[in-house]
Amino acid sequence: MNTWKIREIKPEDNQQVKDLIRNVLVEMGVPKVGTAYEDRALDDMTNEYVGERQAYFVVEENSKIIGGAGIAPLTGLEEKVCELQKMYFLPEARGRGIGTDMINKCLQFGSDQKFKKCYIETLPYMENARKLYNKSGFEVIEKPLGNTGHYNCTVFMIKDLVLN
């Protein structure tokens, strides 16, 4: 039995999510510019993911947010491609299958919203994340798609979605 649950973000989660994302980025040695670290969206993630065809999910365990991931239209290719965004987990969430469940939740959402593909950007040294994406069916592509503004992310991956 899981001691955690995946649910949509609520306004009272905003500060925890912002701190979680920034703490994980610092832990991973990610540059603070040209990455999610400097995104203004972190100040109000609930509001950032309001609207059609987008959602941000959090993993909650014992009243604490231990991970999260968003899914939204990819800027520049909004009609057909969604982007898996801001997927980060605290150390206590890793290696427990939570990442796979989160990706599946996000991909199902993308499929339900009639996106044809899902795109993600990451960094070469985020090896565990890349392994998880590979295991979930993402494939590396040569060039970035859309316009994410994350110029320091140099690994680009895509996956075809099964439409329902």
Score class of each variant (00 low, 15 high):
G76I: 02
D43P: 01
F57T: 11
A69I: 02
V81D: 12
V30F: 10
D44F: 02
I65D: 05
L132R: 04
L84Y: 11
G97Q: 06
K80C: 09
G95F: 06
Q16D: 14
Y133F: 09
P73Q: 05
C118E: 11
I21K: 03
V24D: 03
A72S: 11
K80D: 15
Y88F: 00
D13E: 02
C82Y: 09
R22Q: 15
G76R: 01
L90H: 07
A69Y: 02
L74V: 08
C82I: 03
K116L: 15
R96C: 05
G99M: 07
L25E: 07
P11G: 08
S136E: 00
K10V: 10
T35W: 04
V81L: 00
Y88V: 00
E27A: 13
G76H: 05
G34C: 10
K117W: 05
N128G: 11
V50W: 02
F115R: 05
F115G: 10
P124D: 00
K86F: 04
Y37M: 06
E83R: 11
N62L: 10
I65Y: 03
M102W: 06
E38L: 02
G34R: 08
V24F: 09
L77I: 01
G95L: 03
D39F: 00
E12F: 04
K18Y: 09
N47I: 10
K116F: 12
I98C: 08
N104P: 07
L74P: 13
D43F: 14
G68D: 06
C118A: 15
Q16S: 15
R94G: 01
K116I: 09
M102Y: 11
I21A: 00
N104L: 10
E27L: 14
A129L: 05
A55K: 14
G29W: 03
D19M: 14
R94Y: 07
V81C: 06
T75K: 15
K105I: 12
V59F: 12
L20V: 09
R130W: 09
K64G: 03
T35N: 01
G67F: 08
M126H: 13
G67I: 11
P31W: 01
R96V: 00
P124W: 02
F57S: 08
S63P: 10
F115M: 01
Q15V: 15
R94N: 07
Y37S: 04
V50H: 12
P73K: 09
A69V: 10
D39Q: 07
R96N: 00
